[in-house]
């Protein structure tokens, strides 16, 4: 086995600027996506994910320019999520230089969209993002449900059934976020990650809850994730990607140098 487990920093982009504060000691402008992406690339990030949190569609054009600028300088895979609702949105992002798009809400409301997207552009560039929340009571077997609107709206869809369907529909990868853990810094929901990873053929990216390096390693070792995504622990200069990789390596996980 020599395929490396991937570490993916995630950047929230609003009106063309990285928000939620990214701080590097030697970066002058901490909101510039190109500068931050360049820095993560130098540190050894395996991919970079941009989440477009701009509310209005008028400003989507700005995101296209961000992707164009980053793709001209940073030569690792780039994923763009947020507001991908139509085939035209995907084409625009890919043309700008994105390698993958991540589809979330649009997949829930119209699963056929995933099929169409995969048929049109190939599964390799279609990531299905899943926001999952635990819904079982105490003493009941583990069960998770798909939520939309940042974890506020339940859909009644069972996560395991859903990811199997998305795999069948042509998703090339699953980006799995635990809404219970997102922002808590207590670690991934590794039961969830493992259940999803074992249910599908395609790679699974664990997301939501990372607060320390051990959590990244646990996502792979306990959650059987193929990649781990984190935002804040990298942003505030707490840990570099290099430190994270060294730690994972010390846990026996294969990572890229």
């Amino acid at each position: 086995m020599s395929l490396a487990k991937r570490i993916i920093p995630c950047l929230d982009v609003d009106h063309g600027r990285v928000v939620k504060g990214v701080q590097f000691v030697d970066i002058r402008d901490a909101g510039d996506p190109v500068e931050i992406a360049r820095r993560y690339n130098l540190e050894g990030a395996d991919e970079i994910t941009f989440l477009d949190i701009t509310a209005s569609s008028d400003d989507r054009e700005t995101m296209v320019h961000v992707v164009e600028a980053v793709a001209s300088e940073v030569f690792i895979p780039l994923t763009v999520g947020g507001g991908i609702r139509e085939i035209a949105d995907i084409r625009r992002m890919l043309n700008a230089g994105a390698d993958k798009v991540s589809i979330n809400t649009a997949a829930v409301f119209n699963p056929e969209f995933v099929k169409q997207a995969a048929d049109k552009f190939g599964s390799q560039c279609i990531v299905v993002a899943v926001d999952a929340k635990r819904v079982n009571g105490e003493e009941e077997p583990d069960r998770w449900e798909i939520f939309t609107h940042g974890g506020r709206k339940p859909t009644g869809i069972d996560v395991i059934e859903w990811v199997k369907k998305m795999d069948q529909y042509g998703a090339g990868e699953i980006l799995l976020t635990s809404m219970d853990r997102d922002g808590t810094k207590i670690g991934f929901d590794n039961d969830l990650t493992r259940a999803v990873s074992e249910a599908v053929r395609v790679p699974v990216i664990a997301s939501g809850g990372v607060g320390e390096l051990q959590h990244l390693a646990d996502g792979v070792l306990q959650g059987k994730a193929d990649a781990v995504l984190a935002a804040s622990i990298f942003h505030f200069g707490e840990y570099s990607i290099g430190t994270a990789k060294a730690f994972m390596r010390s846990c026996g996980i294969e990572v890229r140098d």
């Binding site: 395929l3 487990k5 991937r6 395996d46 193929d226």
Partner: peptide, 19 residues
């Protein structure tokens, strides 16, 4: 669909990432 390594551990398809 059931690709495994020599130790029987299941490998994801597509083969995606840095090798």
């Amino acid at each position: 669909d059931d690709h495994r390594d020599k130790d029987g551990i299941r490998l994801k398809v597509p083969h995606m990432g840095w090798n």
